[in-house]
Amino acid sequence: MATPRTLRTRARILDAALDLFERQGYDATTVNQIADAAGITPMTFFRHFPTKDAVLVTDPYDPLIAQAVGAQPADLPPLERTRLGMLAALGDITPTEDATARRRVALVTQSPSLRAAVAIGTEATQEAIVEQLVADGVDPLDAAIAASACLAATTAALLAWGTAPSDVTLADLVHRALAQLALEKP
Rank of each mutant, 00 (worst) to 15 (best):
T122A: 15
D75P: 02
T125A: 15
F46G: 10
A179M: 14
T125P: 02
D75I: 08
R8K: 15
Q110F: 04
P50M: 03
R115P: 03
H48Y: 12
L20R: 11
Q180K: 14
L173M: 13
P165N: 15
F46Y: 15
L159T: 08
G91I: 00
A156P: 04
L87M: 13
P77W: 03
F46N: 10
K185F: 10
L79I: 07
A89K: 08
A128N: 04
L18F: 02
T41S: 15
S148C: 11
L178G: 06
V134Q: 00
P50G: 11
E184I: 13
D167C: 02
L56H: 12
S148F: 13
Q132I: 01
G137C: 06
V31A: 11
P77T: 02
G137S: 05
L18H: 00
I129S: 03
L158F: 14
T30Y: 05
P165G: 09
V130M: 07
P78S: 05
T109D: 02
A157L: 09
A2I: 01
R102E: 01
R5V: 14
V138C: 14
Q24K: 13
R12T: 10
T125Q: 14
A71S: 14
K52I: 10
P95C: 10
D98W: 02
R10H: 11
A144W: 01
V168W: 11
T6S: 09
V130I: 04
T58I: 08
T51A: 15
P186M: 06
L84V: 00
D59L: 10
P186S: 05
D139E: 14
A89C: 04
L79R: 12
I129N: 00
L84I: 01
I13V: 09
G25K: 05
L79P: 01
A16G: 07
A38I: 12
S148T: 14
N32R: 15
R5L: 12
D136R: 12
P77V: 00
V130F: 06
H48S: 04
A149I: 08
T154M: 12
A177G: 12
P112Y: 01
G121K: 13
D62H: 10
T3K: 06
P63C: 03
V174L: 12
A156F: 05
S113I: 05
L158R: 06
I13F: 00
R103I: 00
P42I: 04
S113P: 02
V69E: 03
T169S: 15
G25L: 04
A149N: 06
I145Q: 00
A153H: 08
A106H: 11
L159R: 11
P50D: 10
T29W: 08
